[in-house]
Amino acid sequence: MNKSAIAGLCTLTVLLAAGVYEASALTSDPLTLAEFHKLKAGSGEKSLLHYASTCQREDEAEHAAGYPTTWTCYGADGSSNAVFFYSEGELFGKAQTGLQ
């Protein structure tokens, strides 16, 4: 295979990867401000994941029972977010910036 064919294949691979990433971003389910307000103190972590697929747990390590966990969820623009604080699987605090 010559250098131009390899360069063309690399360029095609990068464009394909970018397209796949863009498609996955469009199919993700970002958190909205209305959904943020629906999550009340005492609700479980599963409720959070029901509303948005852009959430990630900040510390994946398993902790002793009752150790607080933090989840961050992102809005549609990628820079807005919300942080949720759970203890023993129940929401006890939350904050958001820029959700619409």
Rank of each mutant, 00 (worst) to 15 (best):
G19N: 03
A23Y: 08
A64G: 12
A17K: 02
T54G: 12
T32Y: 02
E22Y: 01
Q56S: 14
L9N: 00
A17G: 01
L48D: 01
A23Q: 11
A52T: 04
H37E: 15
A65N: 02
E35Q: 14
F36H: 10
S24N: 07
H63G: 15
E58W: 09
T11R: 03
S43W: 09
H37K: 15
A52H: 05
R57H: 07
C10Y: 00
E45W: 06
L16M: 08
S28A: 13
T27F: 03
E22V: 08
V14L: 15
E35S: 03
Y21W: 12
C55P: 03
G19E: 01
S24A: 00
S47T: 09
Y51P: 03
E58V: 03
G42A: 10
T27E: 00
L39V: 04
A34W: 12
L49F: 11
T54A: 10
A25K: 11
L12S: 14
A52V: 03
A41I: 09
E60S: 04
M1T: 10
E58T: 10
S28Q: 15
F36Q: 06
K38M: 13
K46E: 02
L12M: 15
T11V: 14
N2F: 04
K38S: 12
A25Q: 13
S47G: 06
K46R: 06
N2V: 10
I6M: 10
C55F: 07
T27I: 09
N2G: 13
A5Y: 01
A64N: 07
L26P: 14
F36G: 00
L26A: 13
R57W: 03
A17V: 13
A65L: 11
G44H: 06
K46D: 07
G19M: 08
G42D: 06
C10G: 13
A65H: 01
H63I: 05
L9G: 04
S43V: 06
E58S: 07
C55Y: 03
K38H: 14
A5E: 09
S4R: 04
M1R: 08
A65C: 05
L16A: 02
H63D: 12
S47N: 12
H63Q: 11
G8A: 15
H50D: 13
T27D: 00
E58F: 10
D59L: 08
H63V: 09
I6T: 13
G19R: 13
P30D: 06
V14A: 14
G66M: 06
L15F: 03
A25C: 02
V20K: 09
L9K: 01
A52I: 04
T11F: 11
S28T: 14
A65V: 11
C55H: 05
L39E: 01
K46P: 07
Y21S: 01
H50I: 05
A64M: 08
H37S: 12
V20H: 02
A23T: 05
R57E: 07
L33H: 07
G8Q: 12
S4H: 07
A17N: 03
A64D: 15
S43E: 02
P30C: 02
S53N: 13
Q56H: 15
